[in-house]
């Protein structure tokens, strides 16, 4: 790549005017992206900016906020050693586009977010529970899922 990787923030904001929303963060540049445009932005970051390593996909439950969840992507530029955090807000019953097509490594963490938080990833090749049994009820990492207690059947 000819351009300086450090200028990624300016280029990102220039290319996707009004789409990306920068939020203050104490460790690495962080952006909110609407979920409809998440795939386009992430594809641009991977293919044109060289963020070839997707370190993590994590779901966070902000119950009772609306929209309820955030999906947090931690991207890494292995040659320039730059980190970037992209966040997508998603409500209950909505779906986030899956990035398995861009990074096959997103397969398991997306299944994990589905399993433990109930976030649906659109276009995932095999969106099933990964840790818990298939007949498990509920999603344990949700804030309204109790840590103790017994189910009354």
């Amino acid at each position: 790549m000819s351009h300086d990787p450090k200028g990624v923030i300016e280029r990102l904001e220039a290319k996707f005017v009004g789409l990306t929303e920068r939020t203050p963060s104490q460790d690495q540049p962080t952006f909110y992206v609407p979920r409809q445009d998440a795939l386009v932005v992430l594809e641009y970051l991977k293919n044109d900016e060289g963020f070839s390593l997707l370190l993590d996909v994590a779901g966070v439950d902000y119950f009772p906020a609306h929209p309820r969840f955030e999906v947090v992507y931690h991207l890494f530029h292995p040659l320039a050693v730059i980190r970037l955090r992209v966040k997508v807000r998603v409500g209950e019953g909505e779906a986030v586009p899956s990035v398995v097509g861009l990074w096959p490594g997103a397969n398991w963490p997306e299944r994990e977010a589905y399993d433990l938080l109930g976030i649906v990833f659109d276009g995932h090749p095999q969106l099933t529970r990964i840790y818990l049994p298939d007949d498990w009820e509920g999603h344990p990492l949700r804030k309204d899922y109790p840590t103790t207690g017994r189910r009354s059947d």
């Binding site: 070839s52 390593l53 997707l54 370190l55 993590d56 990074w103 096959p104 490594g105 997103a106």
Partner: peptide, 10 residues
């Protein structure tokens, strides 16, 4: 190397 990066291998 490409496969490693694509699969988030470190």
């Amino acid at each position: 190397q490409e496969a490693c990066l694509a699969h988030s291998v470190t």
